[in-house]
Design a protein around this nucleic acid. Sequence first.
DNA 1: ATTTACTGGTGCAACGGTGCACTCAACCTA
DNA 2: TAGGTTGAGTGCACCGTTGCACCAGTAAAT
Lengths: 352, 352
Amino acid sequence: MWRKRVSGVTIYQVAQAAGVSPSTVSNLLNGRPGRMLPQTRKRVEEAITQLGYRPNRAARQLRTGRIQVIGLVVPSVANPFWGTFARHLEGAALAEGYHVLLCNSERDPARERQYVEELWSDGIRGIVLCSSLPSLEHIMPLVHQGLSLVAFDRTAQAGDPPSLVNISVDNVIGSQLATRHLLELGHERIAFVSGSVRSVNRRERYRGFTDALSDAGLDPQQAIVWSGASEEPYGDLDVAGLGRTAVRDLLAGDRRPTAIVAINDMCALGISAGIRDAGLEVGRDISVVGFDDIVLADLASPALTTVRQPLADMAAEAFAQLRERLTGDAPVGHSMLVRPELVVRASTGPAR
Amino acid sequence: MWRKRVSGVTIYQVAQAAGVSPSTVSNLLNGRPGRMLPQTRKRVEEAITQLGYRPNRAARQLRTGRIQVIGLVVPSVANPFWGTFARHLEGAALAEGYHVLLCNSERDPARERQYVEELWSDGIRGIVLCSSLPSLEHIMPLVHQGLSLVAFDRTAQAGDPPSLVNISVDNVIGSQLATRHLLELGHERIAFVSGSVRSVNRRERYRGFTDALSDAGLDPQQAIVWSGASEEPYGDLDVAGLGRTAVRDLLAGDRRPTAIVAINDMCALGISAGIRDAGLEVGRDISVVGFDDIVLADLASPALTTVRQPLADMAAEAFAQLRERLTGDAPVGHSMLVRPELVVRASTGPAR
DNA sequence: ATTTACTGGTGCAACGGTGCACTCAACCTA
DNA sequence: TAGGTTGAGTGCACCGTTGCACCAGTAAAT
């Protein structure tokens, strides 16, 4: 079976219509308009619009090796945090004529790696990776081959090559803000709830948590920590369910917390649901703090106190960094560590 | 400045390593392994794995006109409903070796059209479009040129060409289920809240709403309808804020509803927040029903009564339809109208 | 002994666009 | 008038894969 040819107008047809050679059309298209007379240029432009010519990207990519697509690997776009990020990144990319190819890793390193390799084989040379795995070893071979990588939601780690750009909020400070807020409200039995233990941002947020406890003269060793049942990767969808489960466990234990610091907002929303499941009231019986400030934090009941990440700015910066590297304007980018902000709402209240 | 060549291993290198011609490698790669001796085949396979060869997609696409990428145009992936859908679609696509190129239209017809045209110029010939605009006229020229289009969240309209596949939940029935549920609880002053009036699914859900009222002997003309302030397109992010605003207006009016049917869950969550803003209790003072059953519906407080869309199944079907058309297995697909299901939770209660 | 069929390959011309190297005419310059 | 320079535009090889058309060698059929 042979497929219908649907490729559309080619540069040859444009050239013919304008009475010039394909090279001239190409010259115009590729920023060399000074190489022809204004009247020639005009003829070519008219032919282009009249025929509705659009360059074939595959041919262009094959010839030049360049392509106006970047990859985005997120844990799961079903999590509104990542959905919002994807949308912002796409907005930034679109403004410069780039497309975004979206990949959900489900926090599975194997899938992450597979995706990155497929993107490479698609000719994509710039990727925003939201991995939060401590080690990016599985990706580094491609980086050395020329892949531009911006790691989002991951701070610089010892041993990172200089070519790697990290963009992240300062998780330690964010978590400190959250924890201090609870301490100031008089809470002392504060729990920390998260999923997988391995991610960089979990580690850092945990450190901010313990730092704040120490500063307040409490013993971090005594802190109540709930970290999911297993070491297995988990999709971000489940993180809310995880929070719900956590509350059951915590309330069944002998040291019931009066406040909970959640790894992120989805988790916090799950925790809030779990608290209600137990017949308790969020913000009065147990306080909850999230992280991210997704849109739903403000919509929840009670509205969620959380640590805000300036997502739109960070997405814009991620794209800007990637683009500079891709176009060769700045071979070495620089990492960015954004200061987060505490947003106090109704899910936190004085300890009773 | 000339860019570093980073194209990787080519089919020539594989052929040379295996001691055959590129054609033979190509034959193996393209499902014609019977054309060579088993030992030859083995040599080629070994050369492929050893060199880590991955076909260059641009070259392949240029030659064949085919490409293993489909486009997905959604209103906004920041809305968890669309995020979840995107994830499911991607899962289905990935299983068959397809990638998904994601585009957020923000419900702007101009942007929608622009995206579809760019996808076309990228050589993409299959698109899942979540438009819900009544008319797809702005897309039809490309469909006639050979674009395979699956319209999601949109039911068949009079005048649709047979080549167009629509996949949607039965909005009329879904909305009827929601409304009847409220009627059975004794509500009579029921409001319908939505954003833009123009979308097909808003129209249908509204019809289900009025049908149910009529069936119960109520006059649909008397129904309380709130439909946003303007005719302008709106991003899906704002739909929650819209719901919140709606409640302010409704409570300021002289006919206060005792129950509200929301166009979707994000809107319902906004409505719930608005009800709380006014110092009232959701499910007791005012009942709220959503549509979609996003993950957060179950997490909300009170948990949201809503109409469930079997999103995973629908996404799988959307991809399957598209794929059949792209591979030529089934030149004419068929539309799908899924029966939705009411999920009763705590946001609805008896009228007082 | 010639024809026919099959097996296991290979040769080659595209696909559409790019940009370096080139030409050719017109215009200086000494 | 020979030599140089500039301006405007063209020729062509190449990017990596594909699959039709072909071919050489062997085996079976006539």
